[in-house]
């Protein structure tokens, strides 16, 4: 565990806590894409299958996996049941089959081993890389976002971004490279570049997150 990896994981943890805080305090899931959140549930369930296969890594690893599965399911519950009226499906219109289909095809072609667990793992990596697209698409459509929502997105974007120096560090420290994770991670981080530009130039200067018309 190096500092980049730890900061990345903490950033991921923080993003979920920020999102939960936003939903609980405003009693609303306005501005949050249900589709993106549902994709994260699929990502975590397909990636963390190893929890149930007895591949023990560490207490940290198991606790984080359980937290990500549990919190993502809880967020879906909040959006779909508890605060259902505050979610507007009419602006959450990205077609998820354009993300799930290609991710599945890629996973069938590019994986480390032709086993169900490895194919699902690769699928979860590809799907995670693009799962934010319905959310970013929604932001693009509405052209604005609550500040707390932008902090959520910034923490979530920083998470995979911080994995990049972690991979570079690991290449030099123990010679390991995971090309599937690295390529998908670069794509995932790349998707946030536009968002980060506006976040740094507007939100962190105390202005509202607004896209030019």
């Amino acid at each position: 565990m190096n500092v980049f990896r730890l900061l990345g994981d903490l950033s991921h943890l923080a993003s979920i806590l920020i999102l939960l805080h936003k939903i609980q305090t405003t009693r609303s899931c306005r501005g949050i894409s249900f589709k993106t959140q549902a994709l994260y549930v699929v990502v975590f369930l397909t990636r963390y299958l190893d929890l149930f296969l007895g591949d023990w890594v560490s207490l940290y690893n198991t606790a984080m996996k359980l937290f990500f599965i549990g919190s993502s399911c809880y967020i879906l519950y909040l959006m779909k049941l508890r605060f259902r009226p505050t979610h507007d499906p009419a602006i959450d219109t990205f077609r998820v089959e354009y993300l799930v289909g290609p991710s599945l095809i890629l996973a069938l072609i590019f994986n480390y081993k032709y086993t169900l667990v490895e194919i699902l793992w690769a699928f979860s990596i590809y799907l995670e890389a693009v799962a934010i697209m319905p959310q970013l698409f929604m932001l693009q459509r509405t052209g604005e976002a609550e500040t707390i929502t932008t902090h959520y997105l910034a923490a979530l974007g920083a998470y995979r971004g911080l994995y990049i120096p972690n991979w570079i560090y690991r290449y030099f420290s123990d010679g390991t490279v995971d090309p599937i994770a690295v390529i998908a991670g670069l794509v995932q981080t790349g998707l946030y570049l536009d968002f980060f530009y506006v976040y740094f130039t507007r939100v962190l200067q105390g202005q509202k997150f607004e896209l030019p018309a």
């Binding site: 990896r5 994981d9 991921h12 190893d50 591949d55 890594v57 560490s58 690893n61 984080m64 996996k65 990500f68 480390y112 081993k113 490895e118 793992w121 994995y163 690991r170 390991t176 490279v177 995971d178 994770a181």
Partner: peptide, 10 residues
């Protein structure tokens, strides 16, 4: 055996 190089990442 071929497989993932890294199994501890999240």
């Amino acid at each position: 055996a071929r497989g993932r190089a890294v199994k501890d990442e999240l």
